[in-house]
């Protein structure tokens, strides 16, 4: 591979290779590479820090836009290490010729999202590049939050016997974007699931639930999140396929384009691993948003960790790996 491919940014195995192969040297601690946000043990207490770039096309889509995504996405990364999001920086790269009316809509959307997340945008930067050197708007947000979990949350804590819960249905964001890109009309319409995750995480923490691992499902969907959790924890994951609920239209769209629903992006869902004796209590907390039990953690058996699904027919299969680019197929 002599050049960067689009798939290198898709949240799949290509991206993992790029990070491990090219970026590892940047980090003081390789373990930090695997998490959505860093937990910094400062003298004043643990702080979470995260940064994320947003390049979605189209810029506006059903139920959201790149501005809302940029605010909520980074806030969610902070929530995934058990931190209440506090402050955000916003860096905008604008393409020459961008309609001001569109920029105003995006800014208003970012402001509304910040209010919804309970955070403030405290600093920022703007650059404009020549027409053709960017695709309308690119946004990078960085955020800090205060850690509210007693200890660090991360897949290293996962252990055989842990149960896996998922916070809602799958595929809404990916479907909204696919529909816009491929000219599909969705009836009934399906909007992105983009939503702050901190309220649910906070409810779990306040109930005294021990969180072994949290992962928000973004690019690459539930599939990539689980493959990452398995790889980092060294455990096998067993899923019950029937427990997974797909948003309306997701199954039809995936059938039409030949895609795996488990690889569709989400922006308001997370998966968590926790001790078995707390699974019922946690599922009850997540139930109002559609959260439920989906599977369990088992000791790794083979040479490589596996994510296995039990189908509704009683058979089983491996979760298919995802390279990073969703390519509709014909055969």
């Amino acid at each position: 591979m002599s050049r960067v491919l689009l798939g290198h940014g898709g949240g799949g195995s290509l991206m993992q290779e790029l990070i491990a192969g090219e970026f590892a040297a940047l980090y003081s601690d390789r373990a930090l590479l695997a998490d959505d946000a860093a937990r910094l043990e400062l003298p004043q207490g643990p702080l979470a820090f995260s940064s994320d770039g947003y390049v979605v096309q189209p810029l506006e889509f059903a139920g959201g836009d790149i501005g809302r995504l940029a605010v909520v996405g980074t806030a969610n990364d902070l929530a995934m290490v058990g931190a209440r999001p506090l402050h955000l920086s916003v860096s905008l790269i604008l393409e020459e010729g961008l309609p001001l009316a569109l920029l105003r809509r995006l800014v208003a959307s970012m402001a509304a999202a910040a209010r919804q997340c309970g955070l403030t945008i405290v600093t920022g930067d703007t650059k404009v590049v020549e027409r053709g050197k960017a695709d309308g708007v690119f946004i990078t947000t960085s955020g800090i939050g205060v850690c509210q979990s007693p200890g660090a949350i991360g897949p290293a804590a996962m252990a055989p016997g842990d149960q896996l819960l998922l916070s809602g249905d799958l595929g809404r964001h990916g479907l909204a974007i696919l529909a816009a890109r491929h000219g599909l009309e969705l009836d009934p319409p399906v909007a992105t699931d983009c939503a702050p995750l901190w309220p649910q995480v906070e409810a779990l923490l306040q109930a005294g639930i021990t969180l072994h691992a949290l992962r928000d499902l973004t690019r690459g969907g539930l599939g990539s999140a689980l493959l990452e959790l398995a790889a980092v924890s060294g455990c096998d994951l067993w899923l019950d396929e029937q427990a997974l609920s797909l948003a309306p239209g997701v199954e039809s769209c995936c059938r039409l384009l030949g895609l795996d629903p488990l690889h569709l992006a989400n922006e308001g869902r997370f998966v968590l691993a926790l001790p078995a004796d707390q699974a019922v209590a946690a599922a009850a907390i997540l139930a109002p948003g559609g959260g439920r039990w989906i599977g369990e953690v088992r000791a790794g058996t083979g040479a490589a960790v596996q994510v296995r699904l039990r189908t509704c027919l009683g058979s089983q299969r491996l979760l298919a790996p995802f390279s990073g680019e969703l390519l509709p197929r014909i055969c």
Binding site: L5, L327, C331
Partner: peptide
């Protein structure tokens, strides 16, 4: 079609190319 884009051509010294790599190039 999408499934055609990552099918490699003939093996070459620099590795098999596919259309996704051609796009990156």
């Amino acid at each position: 079609y999408g499934d055609m884009l990552r099918v490699p051509g003939s093996p070459r010294p620099q590795g098999c190319g596919d259309l996704l790599q051609a796009r990156a190039g």
